[in-house]
Simulated assay, not measured.
Amino acid sequence: MNAILKPDLATLPPPAPIQQLHHYAYKARDAEETRQFYEDILGLPLYHIIQSDYVPSTGEYCPYTHFFFRLKDGSFIAFFDLGDDVKAEPSPNTPLWVNHIAFRVDTVQELENTKKRLEAHGIEVLGVTDHHIFHSIYFFDPNGIRLELSAQLADEEQMAKDSTVAHARLAEWTARKEQWRKERAEGKAVEPLKPQQNDRPEFVKG
């Protein structure tokens, strides 16, 4: 990973307004298996395909089929079938629940309907889970990607209110993490750092 430099911001153009997600891309074991899941079960239409023997960004030789499914807002989830019939391996140092993609639906009823639809196809689903500001269900696609469907409960006013303390809470965490790193380097810290504030007290045991 490249180190993040700190240039003189006054000499740089402003950041471009990022409007929305264009696409998220992942390795697929099999294109048709993936299409059946995303189009036939989840209802996302197959929208675009790119096929080539060479990777445009790097120039390396790696034949692929790159295919895109369109969401309602015009963004995409996309996949690469490299023709090797192998799906991507999960990260060995990260719990399976951490890395995931979350899609939004309009209502909790739609979550429940989708859960029934998935389970009817033999797909294991966790939830509906109450996250206070939204409800979610969780499941895995054929490529081992953990997916989340969420129905928002909090309105814009509540989310805007929460945003006013986000930087302060992150700064507090960052300061404590710096101290934890020092203690770990000195052999004093063994356990991973825990948040000082617990937003989900209902899960505290004892």
Rank of each mutant, 00 (worst) to 15 (best):
E112R: 12
Q179V: 01
P63C: 00
A154M: 01
T129S: 08
L170M: 12
P15C: 05
I4A: 12
K27R: 15
E186S: 13
G122K: 02
G74A: 08
P95L: 05
Y47I: 04
V86L: 12
P92N: 14
P45Y: 06
D53N: 12
D30F: 04
A102Q: 13
E157M: 01
T174A: 10
T58E: 09
E110Y: 07
L21P: 00
D40Q: 15
P90Q: 14
P13E: 14
V55C: 11
T107N: 05
T164W: 03
A185V: 01
N198S: 06
E148N: 09
H22C: 02
L96C: 04
D85W: 02
A25P: 00
L96K: 09
R181I: 12
Q179Y: 06
E112M: 10
T65V: 10
H22M: 02
P7M: 15
L170D: 10
I101A: 10
A154W: 06
A175K: 11
N198M: 05
P95Q: 07
P56K: 04
E178W: 05
L71P: 00
P63S: 01
G187K: 10
I133H: 10
K182C: 06
A160H: 03
L9K: 10
F139S: 11
T164Q: 11
K87M: 08
N113C: 09
L126W: 08
R169M: 04
A16E: 15
R70K: 15
N93Y: 07
Q20P: 00
S163C: 04
